[in-house]
């Protein structure tokens, strides 16, 4: 590093460590000496393994973030929630439909939302969680699927819900229902898979599989490229 790095004090589960201010919470925990097992996954903001709750010294407000996507700040008191025992309802996608009747059987607690918006406030992805719960309640699976899409299933919403809703599992079910039954299937894709299964495209590919290197290179170098 060509510039002097400032150090900050953070408190991992109450214990003080001094770390460079450029680090993420995750890097800072490792800098402090933790060999992470839980609470660490993709390290890029996609997997939801590293949900973290923190509070700044002198403040009462609890904040949340993904440890891999949040920079440390001086006076940060933090703890991770690497696992949350949320319930998942098992279902057979071929036997249910995007209907309130079916959804009630899988996740009845969704309909007991108190409207407190704690889930929305806590979401590290800035998803309007309570809104998609409302969409599910009124049977609008398309809208629920759309606005819940960026969910990482980190579980922070569930940790704050007074109605014990497991938002991320409800949302995933809603997205699968939408994609299976409301979004239309790709018609040409069905046609293409039929042709492959019936062997109609075998001859064309086998001609290439058995072609020699020179022929393949010539074909490749002169292939037409779609604009």
């Amino acid at each position: 590093m060509s510039e002097e790095i400032k150090m900050v004090d953070i408190y991992i589960m109450g214990k003080k460590y001094t770390v460079p201010e450029t680090l993420t919470i995750m890097d800072a925990m490792e800098y402090a000496g933790y060999q992470l097992k839980r609470g660490c996954g993709c390290r890029a903001g996609f997997c939801g393994a590293c949900a973290t709750v923190y509070r700044m010294a002198g403040d009462y407000e609890l904040k949340v973030g993904l440890a891999c996507q949040t920079k440390v700040e001086d006076g940060m008191y933090l703890a991770q929630i690497p696992f949350f025992p949320g319930r998942k309802a098992a279902f057979n996608l071929e036997e249910i439909k995007p209907s309130t009747a079916h959804f009630t059987q899988l996740y009845p607690e969704v309909y007991r939302c108190l409207g407190c918006s704690s889930c929305t406030k806590v979401c590290p992805q800035d998803i309007d969680v309570m809104q998609y719960i409302a969409y599910i309640q009124r049977g609008d699976f398309e809208k629920a699927a759309d606005i819940s899409f960026d969910c990482l299933m980190c579980g922070l919403c569930v940790s704050r819900c007074p109605a014990n809703i497991v938002h991320y599992n409800a949302a995933l079910t809603a997205r699968r229902l939408y994609s299976r039954y409301i979004a239309k299937p790709d018609a040409f894709l069905a046609e293409r898979t039929r042709k492959i299964e019936e062997g109609e495209l075998d001859a064309e590919i086998d001609a290439l599989v058995t072609a020699d290197q020179d022929k393949l290179q010539e074909l490749y170098n002169n292939r037409e490229i779609e604009k």
Partner: peptide, 9 residues
């Protein structure tokens, strides 16, 4: 697609 994966369509 049949499993309910939400592709861009």
């Amino acid at each position: 697609e049949d499993m309910g994966t939400m592709f861009d369509k």
